[in-house]
Design a protein around this nucleic acid. Sequence first.
DNA 1: ACAAAAGTGTTTCCTGTACACCCATGA
DNA 2: TCATGGGTGTACAGGAAACACTTTTGT
Lengths: 272, 272
Amino acid sequence: MDSSANVSERQVQAPSLAISTVIFALRDDTATGRPEIWLPLVRRIRQPHLGRWALPGGPLDGRESLQDAAARNLRETTDLDPTYLEQLYAFGGLDRSATQRLVSIVYWALVRPEQADLARASENVQWFRASEVAGLAFDHDEIVAYALGRLRGKIEYGSVAYHFLGDRFTLAQLRGVYEAVLGKQLDPANFRRQFRSAKDIAPTDEVLQGGRNRPPRLYRYTGARADPPGVDDGTGAGTRTGLAPGTGVRNPVGVPGAMQADVVAEAAGGQS
Amino acid sequence: MDSSANVSERQVQAPSLAISTVIFALRDDTATGRPEIWLPLVRRIRQPHLGRWALPGGPLDGRESLQDAAARNLRETTDLDPTYLEQLYAFGGLDRSATQRLVSIVYWALVRPEQADLARASENVQWFRASEVAGLAFDHDEIVAYALGRLRGKIEYGSVAYHFLGDRFTLAQLRGVYEAVLGKQLDPANFRRQFRSAKDIAPTDEVLQGGRNRPPRLYRYTGARADPPGVDDGTGAGTRTGLAPGTGVRNPVGVPGAMQADVVAEAAGGQS
DNA sequence: ACAAAAGTGTTTCCTGTACACCCATGA
DNA sequence: TCATGGGTGTACAGGAAACACTTTTGT
């Protein structure tokens, strides 16, 4: 139990609220050169689960929006600003954490690889391959798995992939993102064709010099950098074909003001 | 910094948590006979926004899961048990409700039309056409609009549509659901063909007698009644074609235990 | 010259769409 | 019998998948 005597009383009244953030970045595998998905974790320095790795997060105070709190998580653990940040899910069961009833609103973020390389790492903050995380504190294993699923689903639509990359990129790099997320190889020819016809990607005059082969052209993402707010297609399910580049709609259903000007709904306290 | 703080301190730290629920049902228009989307609202009997209509909801106490609280909303306002219940979004801005900082986790539910007809209505609980709600308390206008968008998105995948119907239904009824949600007419012939080939729908031996025309065959939904938990494809975006009946995957990314055994993630309290 | 990636063309297949048509029933 | 919706057949168009092929670079 925690500390003061009337804890049990207060537990019944109001669950505490915390924000956690799953931060994804791509990093090229040193052997194959292929990009892989990585994420930073922090080591718990308190009970429960002391010493185990966990998602960055902390309690929500009354002065910042959910979004802001998640962005702060990101800054504090990695020194990065998010290029993509979206609400994932609110977890709030009771069969957990013997010490205290807790509701966690989980966000997920994407950062660019150059950034991820620079990102702070220390004794208590380290990056892990997403495919290898296991044994995290609380339910964070499952939350990471869920976030990965959502990432996979979401990339099939739209604009998420670009948030892994800088503002100039080759089609091979973009394809690398898709391959890392979807976990399978894609036909370069068809990939190219699909994305050339995508509306919100434009070729530049530049090419990327210095490679061993023919220098590829650089492209630029012309769509909105700030993505579909809270909106979510999550699982991505339906799309059986694979990619669905720019053909799909981008942000058909905007969450109200939930991002910049977040929304509060108050209890109705209906009948009686 | 957790529990021992005094009261004023704690207010700043911990926003209150509420659950609200958007409940959708179909009801046949008396004139055209076409189904339309309706939802129940409750009249506020307290400040702020006293007297205005609002989504059913209430504060979350420490003894029930988010899911359970939403189900209770549903029961208390409409006397119905949900055939579908899923988390929509967590709203938690500060620029709201002058009286109090509040985070609301919003669920959405689908109920069947027969049930909706029986559902309790009273002075303080009434059903409204979804297309006509306006002037609700707080941001509930926007939340409803967001929920409608998600519904539209979601129906293009998978199994949601069936939750509006009983366990036996004609293809015309099913098509009615889609038309009501998508807001456009669909070709009966193609609709039929797509759904006949859908895996999780099976014809029965029965037909629906008593109509003015040829008696249509009754079908049965064979997929999971309890849907993809917390998972969310939300906006539905990508699917440009329209329906995507059973072809799509059903529940490719299950949220961990979030439904039956909800999950709690605790703050990591990383560095420092 | 050769390897390897960039980039193009072509063919096949699948699926959604449109629409013409027959079938069964009640009035 | 006729109107109406249930139910079937079919032809067309667009896009994805597969893969052969040409182009451009570094070594």
